[in-house]
Amino acid sequence: MIDLIVFLVAAAICLVGAVGVVVARNPVHSALMLVMTLFGIAVHFVAQEAHFLAAVQVIVYAGAIVVMFLFVIMLLGVDVHTKLDLGGLKGQRVAAAAFGVVGLGVLVFLMTRVEDGITSQPAGTPIDPNTPDINQLAHSLFDQYVFAFELTSVLLIIAVIGAVILSRKPRPELEESQGGES
């Protein structure tokens, strides 16, 4: 009973937030709606006994990533009255609708198969109830899948360095004067 109430409330929070992200006129309001959705998902995680994931969800997504979004929005000073429907790609709306329907179909198909396929054990039960979930997570990340984990971190570093290089403006006058000196 309590599980159902928690699920319904959290799902409502997620959905209202998700719709709000799209509907809100002001980009800052959209970002805040996104935070609301992330919170709803965190509640779902807690209900599934994935406490650590819930904490990470709030710390990383709500606490860092959306803050970065807000930073960009505030610093660029996006006007509330900016017209958002400026044409866009040709046929984009039709394609979006088509892919949306296909995606929904796949999702519904998967949900009908949940019973026999995806869940080998009932939801909300940890794999090993006697160890905290963070220990189990650490074992899979740093033991079982350590190679993939390290590769991901390398990928992130490459992305950071790439961003730094791309965002450095070439300064012709600098190069010239350096060339002139030497």
């Binding site: 800052v28 805040l32 935070v35 406490h51 650590f52 819930a54 904490a55 709030v58 710390i59 709500a62 606490g63 860092a64 803050v67 807000l70 505030m74 905290p132 979930d133 963070i134």
Partner: peptide
Amino acid sequence: DPPIGILLLLAVSSIAVYGVMLAGW
């Protein structure tokens, strides 16, 4: 005494940023 314990402090303080940030904006 949640299982995430001290992480709650970090989560909450990362939400507290919003208060200050949104107030200013």
